[in-house]
Nucleic acid binder design. Sequence first.
DNA 1: CGGGGTGTTCGACATTGTCGAATCGCAGCC
DNA 2: GGCTGCGATTCGACAATGTCGAACACCCCG
Lengths: 255, 255
Amino acid sequence: MPGPIQSIERAAAILRLLARGSGRLGVGEIAESLELAKGTAHGILRTLQGVGFVEQDKDSGKYQLGAALLHLGTSYLDVNELRSRAINWADALAARSGEAVRIGAPLEGRVLVVHHVFRPDDSLQTLDVGTLLPLHATALGKVLLAFDAALVASLRGGELEAYTRRTLASPTAVKRALAKVREAGWAGELGEMTPGEAGIAAPIRGHGGIVVGALGISGAVERLCDPDGSPKATLLGYVRDAARAVSRDLGASRW
Amino acid sequence: MPGPIQSIERAAAILRLLARGSGRLGVGEIAESLELAKGTAHGILRTLQGVGFVEQDKDSGKYQLGAALLHLGTSYLDVNELRSRAINWADALAARSGEAVRIGAPLEGRVLVVHHVFRPDDSLQTLDVGTLLPLHATALGKVLLAFDAALVASLRGGELEAYTRRTLASPTAVKRALAKVREAGWAGELGEMTPGEAGIAAPIRGHGGIVVGALGISGAVERLCDPDGSPKATLLGYVRDAARAVSRDLGASRW
DNA sequence: CGGGGTGTTCGACATTGTCGAATCGCAGCC
DNA sequence: GGCTGCGATTCGACAATGTCGAACACCCCG
């Protein structure tokens, strides 16, 4: 059995590289980052440009992601079953809880937001669909970690960035937190990603009970938590109910 | 000078194929559509699956677009200068006009929506970012066609689908309409894409005056047009003002 | 239980992708 | 205005890879 096709893997690596940081890189930078010959990198970039996956700035010569990816990304949402099943429950949860709702699934060692319902008020909010959130510092992420040993194994200690003073930044602390999540069946997060913001999430299960995603709300600590820091029981109940409903829709039994 | 890398082009073709229609296809269907050997198609799919660009349904064996594309698509939005420059003007235009605002750029012979501001009311709306709209049946598309001869050349008569009874479905009709758009400097659309809905759009120019995108509003005919079917002068003015402002931000002079 | 259809695997080999070296283009500096 | 340096681009030899026909595996249906 032959392995994967090298040039396609390399092309994908270039696209992922361009999705990080400034998003604009020269041929030399790309070649160096991926340890490729400049001619090789250039050939791949020329082809990616031809198919619209990459664009080159005429002035600086730098490359960046191309427009064709936007359509592909959006088309992915159309076929994503987790999202299809969860949309209505997420809308209902936002209305019921009065908070922003997000649905996440694991991707590249982080949480990919596949659906985002704004908090139903007039505040200025930005859409998170498509963004990658850290696993260890979000309620969604902790849920995904708690029920996926392989995901935990892929998490390296060096990657436990401290976003705030409350972020769990040691493997031991994360491990302990995950045990509690497994026991409780939900995860909370209190000012660990953003100061003053809290989150509550519950697992979404698919066939056979495997956790395929997480559903959660987030908002100001004062609105989501009791003075002692624990999540408000009513909100927690809403989140778990919605997650269970989505799970049933996905074919999970008895969750 | 060697040509593009065949396997990368083929991989891109597979992804585009999966972005159409049902979005789920088997190896045989993909091989047949792209005139590839089944082994070849399978090898490419296996690699795309490995990098997260494709997923395979365990039950049916069908392939579909993968989660990694969502993140790449969203990252594209972050580096898209047209969108970056236009966001605030689009928000302002939505508030000012009370209608939905969209920004589009050409992609694969259609209009790619790169930004969408909802009509500022409580009505249920779906986000169009990432979707592809037809060129001939939308105000955005007519603007892009009017100022891009190559785009017109790529448009085939057979592709002029009649979405409503008012859609311009013949090359002659489209050509005449585009001449008027060039002369007027904006495009309108009246029930040609969706019955009862109208659109008004103006060109966004970049360096050297080249049209790089279009900015437009859309809504019910009664709100956008006078009884005689022409766009309301105030709304048209708002659209042109906003498009000009974005153009200036993009470095176009004297537009 | 057998047949049909689809996904997957294998290995020969022809074609392609890789990469070192050279060239081109452009900007900045003297 | 010319030269230098740096980054993008091109080229062609050739080794490595991607392709594809054939066979196999699996599953569903009659």
